[in-house]
Write a protein that binds this DNA or RNA. Structure first.
Lengths: 145, 145
DNA sequence: CCAATAAAGGACATTTTTGTCCTATTTATT
DNA sequence: AATAAATAGGACAAAAATGTCCTTTATTGG
């Protein structure tokens, strides 16, 4: 609707990793894909991206998996995940696809989009994985279905 | 960023048709594609969709083309174009791609998305082609580049 | 050291979106 | 009636996004 499928899986995966990390549990790709109801191999690719972008931490070998430490959960905001996967489309792009749309040379929707985008941007930049994981932990929110 | 490419072209095309219709000019696919800087044949398909959805009016044969009458420009809102081309994804879909995300069983971002989507929805439902075309006419906004 | 386990990564397959080309249909003009 | 101009529509092509499979690399525990 707004993010790519890859980004949707990425956010859900990161939130699940955060949730389990609250209990000190490291989680595997298989478990993540199972718990967020996503295709395993594709999810593995996305987790690689997130790991390369330092959004989550990965450990190879037996007992390995993905994790986040408590401080990272606070510092990692949704905007970092979206940026790592979808790039800066949401921030930069014109709603009507113009290359050089800006306040000087705006598309007909420019001003109307500015407000909506600002709200979205603020939301993404102010929402941490910790915040999302705790909602899940308490059973208020869900990651599947 | 938010709409498909097809929808971006569709909105730009419809606004251009409205603009020219203000002067009583009927416009061809070729002229539209030229003026909004879009691929001709693809634009033709999109105009077909808009015509079938009664968003714009088409006339075949010599002197034919696309047009809108003054009353239609007021009644046609952006939401109708978006709906005709992209369906109701923007209205219905969960931000994280869950099938059954709602107030009872929300995804972690549900509440945060509700506000943003409501604003987007209101904007689309309250913006008419007439409003957008007049901005263009006065030279305040642009449809290319 | 060896075996097993888990992520990393490359190559490939499928699906969707975007885009093109050609023919058919409609209609105004002569 | 013939011609030409315009949209309608079907079939195809290319590109991007999504998704799978298999091999390599790192690491743990026996």
């Amino acid at each position: 609707m707004m993010f790519s499928k890859a980004c949707e899986y990425g956010i859900r995966a990161a939130v699940y990793v955060a949730l389990q990390s609250l209990d000190g549990r490291r989680v595997s790709v298989n478990e993540i894909a199972e718990e967020i109801d996503s295709p395993i191999a594709f999810t593995a690719k996305i987790l690689q991206q997130l790991s390369r972008s330092k959004v989550i931490h990965s450990v190879k070998g037996p007992t390995g998996g993905f994790e986040l430490d408590r401080t990272e959960m606070d510092t990692v905001k949704l905007s970092m995940i979206v940026h790592a996967i979808d790039g800066d489309d949401i921030y930069v792009g014109c709603g009507l696809g113009l290359k050089e749309c800006n306040a000087n040379q705006p598309c007909p929707l420019h001003d109307k989009f500015v407000d909506i985008r600002t709200d979205l941007k603020n939301m993404l930049e102010n929402t941490s994985l910790y915040e999302l994981a705790t909602g899940l932990e308490v059973g208020l929110t869900y990651l599947k279905r």
